[in-house]
Design a protein around this nucleic acid. Structure first.
Length: 609
RNA sequence: GGGGACGUAGUUCAGUUGGUUAGAACGCUGCCCUGUCACGGCAGAGGCCGCGGGUUCGAGUCCCGUCGUCCCCGCCA
């Protein structure tokens, strides 16, 4: 291979096959850098030694595929290239074959500046020849192998589940596959193997895992592709702690293959705490927590600032940002996405001038250094006068939440904006500082769906509520259409694993009892008949002796993305899709022929007006 | 569904207040060059300024629309 020859190989015969990475033609002396996925080696063609080969070498162009046969030669000391691993040797060509020519590519894998992403995706096969992409592909392979072998060693079986399965509405939109044999009926591609893995527990496969593709027809983001890969696992009889232990185990193994020793167990934090301290259910622990600095203000202060004293007043601290100019302060406002009910004080200096006592207390409480940026987010005092629609009394908790999350979003936005100043996002080489893992636990069981005016499952409807909240669940059933119902307080045995502010995975202990499952469906506003229609097969399975079980699923792409230090999933997925879910290389999706549609019994409605 | 950024040579970009023949670097083609390694030198080719419309004596530049890529909100149990 092109990256493996060293001084110790000097004198040996070698055959190098690969692409012409670069040709340096000095006239009677031609150097060719031959590249394959392992690296680059210099091949020398000397007119004096071998005129025929030299002539052939002059005809080579970038990205030709060649075979060079020759003798490995230790280079003279003054011609050694210390920048590459093979720089101490070169191959003196004795035979040169052009295995294939190449058109001039739209860009070269060896280029220092990347072309725009559209071009990279269209000519993905050229883009993938680049070192960085080869590195990412290898990293992904190694991570997957490490996870497989760890889970296998722990007694997990990798078991495949169908891709063509049943649409179970709720959650994301399905990708549908029409049935030819049964016109008018459709399979759905799985959003996750959720029900299959639970059924595997009922089937006696008490430790299951799968590195599996999942499909969701939702809008894309830098960290969201319509098809993505999950590390999916499920086990019988576990406490949540047991699931966490398994995940910590395979993540350690995965990070180890990438050269990082991470510390386990990961810290844990309840959902409520995460919201209060970080304004997010996926806190980035590399940054300091926020502080509720309500006590720093007097009643008069609140009035003067038009701030609601009954709501949190959150101090966000971003370290080492330093003095901000007027213009820079103005740039903070657009980052703040809090709507109507939260307000922003981005100018701490002014606060210090007008309310020196409060400002001093805030500084102390946030342990702020002089060059730290402090920004305050508070509740608008108009809130109290605004009863929420429908005449229901305002839910204080809900408004608290709005202030926390508005502050949390701003915290992350500010941190990103000033990343180069606080340097907390830069890799230090110390894995326990660079990779801040966290378990977020005790998620709420239900979320109020403002649009549908009903409660929805926060995780999924098969998640087990906390034992201690069973009464609230039963109590809430009569008020299943009331946003203030006790259902809001029901906590689930659900947990997320978070890394540096990215949700890596999400899991739960599941419901294994029919009666509780029925109550959950009821709370979600589903009648017995509706539940039967959607999940009948599963409810029936639950009745045949279901062991308690639970599990989790982690995004493999996101793990590899973070390990690769990439900003987008597209860097670690060989053939990704654009923001409009198009594959630019194969140009998919496409219309299909009338004949194909006819066979499937499908008619396309003409675009409206 | 909404908001924002971008679109000029094969590629990455520059292009003044709307003004005459649209530039640079890399790449490409040819010639020269025996120790280069992002080789060097000389010469040259290469443009539907995304597309369509409008304003104007005149549009790469201003306006409207449209297409494409990226980022964000909504959405993603």
């Amino acid at each position: 291979m092109c990256g493996v020859l060293r001084s110790s190989d000097a004198g040996k015969k070698a055959v190098l096959m690969g692409w012409v990475n670069r040709r340096r033609d000095l006239g009677n002396l031609v150097f060719i850098d031959v590249r394959d996925r392992t690296g680059v080696t210099q091949v020398v063609c000397n007119k004096e030694l071998n005129p025929a080969i030299h002539e052939k070498a002059s005809r080579l162009r970038n990205e030709y595929v060649i075979a060079a046969i020759g003798t490995v030669k230790q280079r003279e000391p003054n011609t050694i290239n210390r920048n590459i691993p093979t720089g101490e040797i070169e191959l003196v060509a004795e035979e040169l074959r052009i295995l294939n020519e190449a058109k001039q590519p739209p860009f070269l894998p060896g280029d220092t500046v990347l072309p725009n992403e559209e071009l990279r995706l269209k000519y993905r096969y050229i883009d993938l020849r680049r070192d960085a992409m080869q590195f990412n592909l290898e990293l992904r392979h190694k991570v997957a192998i490490a996870i497989r072998s760890y889970l296998s060693s722990q007694g997990f079986f990798e078991i495949e589940t169908p891709f063509m399965t049943r649409s179970t509405p709720e959650g994301a939109r399905d990708y549908l596959v029409p049935s030819r044999v049964q016109p008018g009926s459709f399979y759905a591609l799985p959003q996750s193997p959720q029900l299959f893995k639970q059924i595997l527990m009922i089937s006696g496969c008490d430790k299951y895992f799968q590195i599996v593709r999942c499909f969701r027809d939702e809008d894309l983001r830098a960290d969201r592709q319509p098809e993505f890969t999950q590390i999916d696992l499920e086990m019988s009889y576990p406490q949540p702690e047991r699931v966490w232990e398994v995940v910590e185990g395979f993540l350690s193994a995965a990070f180890k293959t990438a050269g990082y020793e991470i510390k386990t167990p990961f810290p844990r934090m309840s959902y409520d705490e995460a919201i209060r301290l970080y304004g997010s259910d996926k806190p980035d622990m590399r940054l300091p927590a926020m502080n509720d600095v309500r006590e720093a203000f007097t009643a008069e202060n609140f009035q003067a600032l038009a701030v609601n004293p009954n709501l949190p007043v959150m101090a966000i601290r971003i370290p080492k940002v330093g003095e901000l100019s007027r213009k820079e302060r103005d740039e903070i406002k657009p980052l703040f996405t809090g709507k109507g009910n939260a307000k922003l004080f981005e100018d701490f200096k002014r606060l210090e001038k007008s309310f020196p006592d409060s400002a001093a207390k805030i500084r102390a409480k946030s342990s702020a250094e002089t060059d730290d940026l402090i920004v305050i987010v508070a509740g608008d005092d108009k809130l109290a006068e605004h009863p929420s629609e429908g005449g229901v009394k305002p839910e204080v908790k809900q408004h608290d939440h709005a202030v926390y999350t508005a502050a949390g979003l701003l915290r992350v936005a500010l941190a990103q904006k000033y990343a180069s100043r606080h340097r907390l996002f830069e890799k230090t080489g110390n894995a326990s500082v660079d990779f801040r893992f966290l378990w977020v636990t005790d998620f709420p069981m239900f979320e109020w769906d403002e649009e549908g005016k009903r409660w929805a499952a926060a995780h999924h409807p098969f998640t087990s509520p906390h034992e201690r909240d069973m009464e609230k669940l039963s109590g809430g059933l009569d008020a299943a259409e009331d946003p203030n119902s006790p259902l809001a307080a029901v906590r689930a045995l659900a947990y997320d694993v978070v890394l540096n502010g990215t949700e890596l995975g999400s899991g739960s202990i599941r419901i294994h009892r029919q009666d509780i499952q029925r109550k959950i469906f009821h709370a979600l506003g589903m009648t017995e008949d509706e539940a039967r229609a959607r999940f009948g097969f599963f409810l029936e399975a639950l009745e045949y002796g279901t062991p308690p079980h639970g599990g989790i699923a982690l995004g493999l792409d996101r793990i590899v993305m973070i390990l690769a230090g990439a900003e987008s999933l597209r860097e670690v997925i060989p053939f990704p899709k654009t923001a409009r879910a198009v594959d630019l290389m194969v140009d998919a999706p496409t219309p299909v022929s009338e004949a194909q549609l006819k066979e499937l019994g499908i008619q396309i409605r003409k675009a409206r007006e």
